[in-house]
């Protein structure tokens, strides 16, 4: 019987022929520390969960979701919000109502520029507090002109209104012919049948084309993860409305979709101390906005010459 010669170190090592225990251990040690270093160098990926999850990555386009799939998506959002903010929200997917087209009317005679609408909007719609994201920009305009280039929104007097000025809040105008929708390369923003232009925050890729296209400077971009204090989170949420956004997506005024599609007035209207803001269904002849458009001196749709045809009207009392 012939046996192959045994190696001097004893039994053959699993690392291969001719390898000593010492070199095997050394190789494994280097390999293990290499793996550890690799893991450590991938540390930034730990934060990836804040941006996407497998469920979010596999989610279908909003308009293609079946009601069952939508229910799952809403549950995922509720879970994510609870994990991040410690508050269990109620997220709904509200559809446009039949026979309803929203319009907003703003009374330039009554507005005193107190900016309460700005902050009521922030509180209602869960906007980031640092850095600040605000949907409404109140412009202080000198009497005698409607040129927004002459406006100033960093005014800070002791008391408002100031002599010689009037105030014009500008927010998303919910255009009938919205330029922002046309430029979106992924159809993450579109106009619904009740006139609200909505954004699917889960579909937006953050290219900011819409921000550039909007002539009213109405769209806002989340440069960082929005910061909202837990105790100021509004738990009444809608998918296309005020659910917390992620870093890297656009947002804008949506006429408080979570309120208005449930029949309520928007937050900016309810907080206005002078009642300068009016909202309603323009197709209903008995609504306030229909009355205003019929009887009042409605001077503009802002930047009318662009042909965007806003659903936000400015009017005077006298």
């Amino acid at each position: 019987m012939a046996y192959p010669p045994q190696s001097p170190a004893g039994a053959p090592t699993p690392g291969g022929e001719g390898q000593s225990r010492r070199s095997f251990l050394r190789t494994s040690a280097v390999f293990a520390s290499g793996l550890a270093a690799l893991a450590a160098s991938l540390a930034p990926l730990r934060h990836l969960e804040d941006y996407t999850s497998l469920e979010l990555f596999m989610q279908k386009y909003y308009k293609e979701l079946t009601p069952e799939e939508m229910a799952k998506v809403l549950q995922r959002i509720e879970r994510e919000v609870e994990r991040q903010y410690g508050v269990r929200p109620h997220v709904r997917d509200l559809k446009p109502m039949n026979g309803v087209e929203f319009a907003y009317a703003h009374n330039l005679t009554r507005c005193i520029g107190c900016r309460k609408c700005v902050h009521a909007c922030v509180a209602e719609n869960n906007q980031s507090r640092t850095p600040e994201i605000q949907y409404i920009r109140v412009l202080r305009m000198p009497h005698g002109t409607l040129d927004v280039d002459k406006s100033e929104h960093h005014y800070d007097p002791k008391l408002v209104p100031e002599k010689g000025y009037f105030y014009m809040p500008v927010q998303c105008q919910q255009c009938k012919n919205p330029p922002c929708v046309k430029v979106c390369p992924v159809h993450a923003t579109w106009q619904e049948t009740d006139g609200i232009t909505v954004i699917d925050y889960d579909w937006c890729i953050g290219c900011r084309y819409c921000e550039a296209a909007c002539p009213y400077w109405a769209r806002r971009f989340n440069w960082t993860k929005p910061s909202i204090p837990k105790d100021r989170l509004n738990p009444d949420m809608a998918y296309l409305g005020n659910r917390p956004r992620r870093q890297g997506v656009m947002e804008k005024c949506h006429f408080c979709i979570q309120r208005t599609r449930a029949g309520r007035y928007p937050a900016c209207l309810e907080v206005c101390p002078t009642g300068a803001r009016k909202f309603g269904n323009v197709l209903d002849p008995n609504s306030e906005v229909a009355y205003i458009l019929r009887t009042k001196r409605v001077f503009i749709q802002l930047k009318e010459d662009l042909g965007t045809s806003p659903r936000f009207f400015y009017y005077f009392d006298v």
């Binding site: 005193i112 600040e132 008391l159």
Partner: peptide, 9 residues
């Protein structure tokens, strides 16, 4: 007249 809310930062 009343005091305005803080302006945008």
């Amino acid at each position: 007249p009343r005091a305005p809310a803080p302006g945008p930062h």
